[in-house]
């Protein structure tokens, strides 16, 4: 199994990369971690004429926090994400996910930008970023634009990034006091795409009331899904098992899984329910100071 020929470019700036993408509209594809793309090329499902390798663009791999955001550079490896002490301390949803993506060796190469912008509903980070209300910085020939994660995923492999654009930064709003987050993945084995993955963020006040929440779902629809009704429902509720169970049902109803070797639709929908409830509980425990 060997990939087809292509022309290979190694830009040293984002502008240069975007220029190449713009020049070869549609024929060029960004090579970041390559852990999905190269496999697809070997299977000859993807045959891009041009690969634009962005791995040598300096200052694109970082995890840092300022007063507004956690900022993750697009070529940050997913392994780095879960190793980051800032992420572990304040964005556990991302370190949870960072430990569940594919397998440890793939995580050494796979990038956050690739995982987020590939548009594969089986990728784990989009659900987390939907839950966290993240936004994406996107460079194009006409400049930079910022798009919220919610609304970004249009269809399988189709996102708001145009063929002449490139995602450069993932921004996660800094969590305020009382925030807890978690990601859970049900998988058949290490390296599998999720049967279902759930990312949850909750903010509670000192009385334990949920101020607001966000729930993202992995691999139970054509794209990663933001469970709007479930998330909205939680706002203003007092934490109880019954409340979480109700939210879980709403999340289940937001999912639209396809049957596959992992199971049929009714099973997958029920798993959305179960894992939403469990992940919310974990996020709430964290919000209240637990691990």
């Amino acid at each position: 199994m060997y990939p087809p020929n292509f022309e290979y470019y190694v830009p040293s700036t984002v502008e240069e990369a975007v220029g190449l993408l713009d020049q070869h509209q549609g024929d060029a594809k960004i090579l970041a971690g390559g852990q999905s793309l190269i496999a697809m090329m070997k299977l000859r499902l993807a045959q891009p004429a041009i690969l634009v390798d962005i791995n040598r663009i300096p200052n694109l791999a970082y995890v840092r926090e300022d007063d507004k955001f956690l900022r993750i550079g697009a070529t940050t490896r997913t392994a780095e994400l879960s190793r980051s002490t800032i992420v572990q301390a304040r964005y556990p949803i991302l370190s949870d996910a960072g430990r569940e993506i594919a397998d440890p060796i793939v995580r050494n190469r796979g990038t956050v930008g690739g995982n987020v912008s590939h548009g594969d509903p089986g990728n784990d980070l989009p659900a987390c970023l939907l839950a966290m209300g993240a936004e994406f910085e996107i460079h194009g020939p006409k400049g930079i634009r910022t798009l919220p994660a919610r609304g970004f995923y249009q269809d399988t492999f189709v996102t708001s990034v145009a063929t002449n654009e490139m995602m450069t930064e993932i921004r996660v709003p800094r969590p305020g006091a009382g925030t807890g987050s978690a990601y859970s993945k049900m998988e058949r084995k290490v390296g599998d795409f999720a049967t279902v993955g759930v990312g949850a963020r909750v903010v509670v006040d000192s009385s334990g009331k949920i101020l607001n929440a966000g729930i993202g779902l992995t691999n139970v629809g054509p794209t990663a899904i933001y469970a709007t009704a479930a998330s909205d429902f939680l706002a203003g509720k007092t934490d109880s098992d019954a409340v979480l169970a109700q939210a879980a049902v709403l999340a289940r109803d937001a999912s639209a899984p396809s049957p596959d070797n992992r199971g049929p639709v009714d099973f997958k929908k029920d798993m959305v329910r179960i894992w939403t409830r469990r992940t919310l509980r974990k996020a709430l425990d964290r919000a209240k100071g637990g691990k």
Partner: peptide
């Protein structure tokens, strides 16, 4: 055939 690669033909890792 619904298991034409190790993505779907599930060989156990050390974890399972």
């Amino acid at each position: 055939n619904k298991a034409t690669s190790f993505l779907e033909y599930l060989l156990p890792t050390a974890v399972e």
